[in-house]
Design a protein around this nucleic acid. Sequence first.
DNA 1: TTTTTGAATAATGTAACAAGATTCAAAAAT
DNA 2: ATTTTTGAATCTTGTTACATTATTCAAAAA
Lengths: 172, 172
Amino acid sequence: MTSRGGKRMGAGRPKGTNHYGEPTKPVRIPVSKIDRVLRFVREREDMVPLYGNEVPAGFPSPADDYAEGVLDLNTHLVREPTATFFVRARGDSMIGAGIHDGDLLVVDRSLEATNGKVVIVSINGELTVKRLRQAKGRTWLVPENPDYPPIDFQEQDDTHLWGVVTNVVHSL
Amino acid sequence: MTSRGGKRMGAGRPKGTNHYGEPTKPVRIPVSKIDRVLRFVREREDMVPLYGNEVPAGFPSPADDYAEGVLDLNTHLVREPTATFFVRARGDSMIGAGIHDGDLLVVDRSLEATNGKVVIVSINGELTVKRLRQAKGRTWLVPENPDYPPIDFQEQDDTHLWGVVTNVVHSL
DNA sequence: TTTTTGAATAATGTAACAAGATTCAAAAAT
DNA sequence: ATTTTTGAATCTTGTTACATTATTCAAAAA
């Protein structure tokens, strides 16, 4: 009935006992995206643990602290969001570069297409992926499959270099 | 000097002229994620256009409406965020399945490891990726490279099946 | 010694506010 | 009559304030 607590050292909820372990700030979000944003911040939706070759001690629960070794695929694979697009690979002409039929290619238009890079080129209205080779003042689009011949490349009306392939996503 | 505007129909900034074309609400966000969240809501960071084999008419600007043909890698590759982890592949024993040394493997623990699936297994404290084969009442871990022999698999103290590989991310 | 209690303090969702942006009709200039 | 300037009205937006909830722990009670 009378007072029990009172002013004293250590009373009250300690700092840092919030849901995230760090301070928060209100940020104005468009209503249609509030759900996505809350899922992202609350459930670490796209932060997935990354292991090396050692056996993980146990599978971390979402409540655990992924202080290190977490990976967000968007940030990891898309460096320049506004200059990036995806293309689905067709055929097996680049099988030697690890590009299989149906793979998803991440293409960055902001990277310079230098000798040896794998590039996306449109020829006669069709997209194709090849390795760029510059030698003896000429440029070649070289498949990575002995069944296909290199293509003499010169940028013309019907030919355009779209960007450099940075990653290949292969589904099993 | 005197009044010029005044009370009248149509005065003032019209509704819906905000940055997003819809109302906003303050949402409390952990400080370390404010940058990511703002980039997401403002620049549609992780929505990247996806093309088929036709030549894109032009590169869409971030201001355009990506009503269709956009892809978010996290959603696309990680179906069950809480049951998913990444492992970096080592060696070339699964080269035939399109898995190269250094590739990033997306592993889903919620999928059933059935015959023919590519799985992650720990053996003697080390992680390895192989294809699961069940035949004649026995289970084998089969490499996809003729240089390596199949492994007779039985779940024991030092052996654990961690999950099914759903995607392979290969960097160029 | 163990259990109960409530004062103290932090966290959190949201309302409120101040400053900025935008519009348009009235006033002024031409 | 036509064009330009102006500022009141109104919405947007980043941030602060606040009321409510959650949490902790030492004192009081059992």
